[in-house]
Design a protein around this nucleic acid. Structure first.
Lengths: 248, 248
DNA sequence: TATATACATGCAAAAACACGCATTTTTTAG
DNA sequence: CTAAAAAATGCGTGTTTTTGCATGTATATA
């Protein structure tokens, strides 16, 4: 059986049964569990399913999915946010895209902080409702519910009207060679453009995302000005220090 | 059963029943209490529920004063929403602006309803996250936090690109002679434009808003196609029936 | 205070997993 | 059509995750 054909079948089964179990699939499709695991990993990178221990789940519904996207717990996110906070300069223009980690950062911003924030993420705009001195601009566009962000052509074109001092990029996957990547091409395009119009780029990354690659490439590591991490193994730390990115 | 699947089930149960008890869950989900406890701990770390002795409680959405701006109680809003719902046609393009009453309506829409919804209200977009058959477009613009809507020139200009079958207008003030009005001129301009590009206009109004006027006029009563009300005094009812608006 | 219940911790077994490597299959180039 | 290259697959090995249980501790309720 062809690889692609098999993966289609997996998706079909998943669509019907809401979940799949690796061991079961290896029997039903007459291949080894390793092959199934490899398939599931690829499909997960393409955002077509959600890989979990022993199998995979159908993607969505969006709200739960949005909450569950990262396996990282609130503690890690808060730690990252705390380290990133000093890089937000008062009275600057900050571009923020959607991710639960970015949301955690936004929630840490002092209530009297002065800045202009541009975002394509409605949850992030709403989280800033109580900050009197932050003016918020929503980019708008086609609302992509799974990530709770606006994407598409109109979002892209709106970006042409802006310049930002700092872009806080939400990271799905990061790899030393491949750079940063995301499951959908629309998201990748938006992130590329956001990078282009910003002087500096900051990203917060939890350890488990290192060395993972997804379907659509956003850009090389060099695009990042600051890379905020916690508990990074020394070998990875060394490797990234070669690149011209400020590792925090 | 897959771990994540189980955790999703716990959240679903919690969402329905407001609280869960560890011992109960271990029976309902066929796992040991230890496993349930571990699940609850993880979910608590992710901030998805609040762990308490013997079980867990539902964690409400973060409260903003936006939720309580209007004096009208949730009951009235739900009653209005129920009356308005039949006017939403499947497969139509619906323009919705921000208001707590409109939000209540959106929340009543069946999960499988098919439509295109355009809005300048992030909360409304987010409320539609679970409706698979509704495509949502965010207008974007300057985020006006007090009303949680996007306003300003860019919002206005984005509206030039759209046509809608129905515009659901949030009402601040309504008066027989003065028509509908809002506190800020920006909101008025947006509402005017939304009216222009829509075939029909629907508004839900609670009794206390009748006979009130605000700073910026949106338009005459005749602009409204449908006016949804409850418990309207007969004298007001009669007066409005003179105008060519369908009073419900 | 007494007693049952809930809890944290450590441990062990089973299952699932990642990784390297050899083998097979498919694709590409000549 | 054939040979080389690339990709996909399966297997062995060691590691990680998940789960349930046993033990001792903490907490609630009468």
């Amino acid at each position: 059986m062809l690889k692609l054909e098999r993966q289609q079948k997996i998706l079909a089964i998943l669509n019907k049964e809401q979940k799949v179990i690796a061991r079961e699939l290896s029997i039903r499709l007459n291949v080894s569990e390793d092959t199934i695991r490899r398939d599931l990993k690829e499909l997960d990178n393409q955002g077509l399913l959600r890989r979990v221990h022993s199998g995979a789940l159908k993607v969505g519904p969006p709200v739960t999915d949005f909450n569950y996207r990262t396996t990282v717990d609130q503690m890690t996110k808060k730690a990252l946010a705390k380290k990133a906070l000093p890089f937000l300069k008062e009275d600057s223009v900050i571009l923020v895209d959607g991710s639960t980690t970015n949301l955690a950062l936004i929630e840490q911003i002092p209530l009297d902080f002065r800045a202009t924030i541009i975002t394509n993420s409605p949850p992030i705009a709403m989280a800033l409702a109580n900050h009197k001195n932050i003016s918020v601009t929503n980019l708008g566009g086609d609302f992509y519910k799974r990530s709770m962000i606006d994407i598409g052509i109109t979002t892209y074109r709106r970006l042409l009207d802006f310049r930002a001092d700092l872009y806080i990029m939400g990271i799905y996957n990061i790899d030393l060679e491949a750079g940063t990547s995301v499951p959908t091409i629309q998201e990748a395009e938006i992130k590329k453009q956001m990078t282009r119009i910003s002087t500096e780029v900051l990203s917060m990354v939890s350890t488990d995302k290192f060395g993972t690659v997804s379907h659509s490439i956003v850009g090389p590591i060099e695009d990042l000005t600051y890379l905020i991490t916690t508990d990074l193994p020394t070998d990875i730390h060394k490797a990234y220090n070669q690149k011209k990115v400020l590792l925090i």
